[in-house]
């Protein structure tokens, strides 16, 4: 070993810097650089095929505020994010509480719950595409076979705006539920048993136990799960890309999908970047607030 390596290995200050450097390089290269590039694109007139570009200020953002498709996508983004998160939180809490109990075959149930998370999302979404297909929908065929759907009833899950929105929210919830459940389960198992025992001795019922003991104690971890979920819902587009491509007639468009279709498929990189970055300030502030709140409510 050289003298130089020896001194590096013994130098706490430099060793720390060297060891954290790969992570910093990774973040700068794969997150920082694209982010600043997107910032630049959003104030330019760049297209996918252009070799020249010029600065046009906030023109792309100004135009967006008068674009009905964008405004619809903005509204959809909030609906999509908050409805799916509300459902995820309630369902994940219920599942996590159920999985805390001991019962036969618990590991199989845990495995099944985790499957949507470990399977590639594109594959899962394609499965849903077939489940919701206008001709071959297994839901419709089963409904008809069981007599739930009459001869004139044939829901077009992805072709009617309300059903399409409900479909993409359902698939998104199906996808995020395992992660949220595992996070909450981790939080629940970390609560010392003697707190539960003390509450039981004091005669706390299920709801009081739940709202005054369990939820306050897992709140920090719930907020982290919610933060992940909200950021995911605001920035992800795979479910929409595979299932509806923003249709019917742009009614399920969210900011992430609209940014892709405008910037990449449509070739207007500048407008695509402006759409993608539109909510960045809101998201950044929300993330900071939620992390602060999580830290404040942390039980030590």
């Amino acid at each position: 070993m050289t003298k130089h390596t020896q001194s590096l290995a013994d130098n706490e200050r430099w060793l720390g810097r060297v060891m954290i450097a790969p992570a910093i390089v990774y973040i700068v290269a794969l997150v920082g650089f694209p982010f600043f590039l997107a910032l630049f694109y959003s104030v330019s007139n760049i297209t996918v095929g252009s070799t020249e570009t010029s600065f046009i200020g906030l023109e792309n953002f100004r135009h967006l505020l008068h674009n009905r498709t964008f405004l619809r996508a903005l509204r959809n983004t909030f609906v999509f994010a908050f409805v799916s998160q509300a459902l995820v939180l309630v369902l994940a809490k219920t599942l996590a509480l159920s999985l805390l109990k001991d019962f036969r075959g618990k590991w199989v149930v845990r495995l099944l719950i985790l499957l949507p998370w470990v399977a590639p999302i594109s594959l899962g979404s394609i499965g849903w595409l077939w489940i919701l297909d206008s001709v071959y929908s297994v839901i419709n065929w089963t409904g008809r076979a069981l007599g739930i759907f009459g001869p004139a009833t044939w829901p077009i899950w992805l072709g009617q705006p309300t059903l399409a929105m409900a479909s993409i929210i359902t698939v998104h919830v199906w996808r995020l539920l395992p992660l949220a459940t595992v996070i909450l389960l981790g939080g629940l198992t970390s609560i010392p048993q003697d707190i539960h025992d003390a509450a039981a001795v004091d005669g706390a019922g299920f709801w009081r136990h739940n709202f005054q003991i369990t939820i306050p104690l897992v709140l920090p971890i719930m907020l982290v799960a919610m933060l992940f979920g909200v950021v995911f819902a605001f920035t992800d587009m795979i479910v929409i890309y595979v299932l509806t491509r923003g249709g019917p007639y742009d009614t399920t468009q969210v900011l992430a999908s609209l940014a892709f279709f405008t910037g990449i498929d449509g070739g207007d990189l500048a407008a695509g970047a402006a759409i993608a970055l539109f909510l960045f300030p809101v998201l950044a502030v929300s993330a900071i607030l939620m992390l602060r709140l999580a830290r404040r409510t942390e039980v030590t």
């Binding site: 297909d133 206008s134 001709v135 071959y136 044939w154 077009i156 899950w157 992805l158 072709g159 009617q160 399409a164 509806t244 491509r245 249709g247 019917p248 007639y249």
Partner: peptide, 21 residues
């Protein structure tokens, strides 16, 4: 027509025709 055409991708019309729909 029916609203199913609002949900189509590029190969949906092939499938619908071949399924007799």
């Amino acid at each position: 027509m029916t609203p199913e055409v609002l949900a189509w991708d590029a190969s949906s019309n092939n499938r619908a025709m071949l399924a007799g729909k």
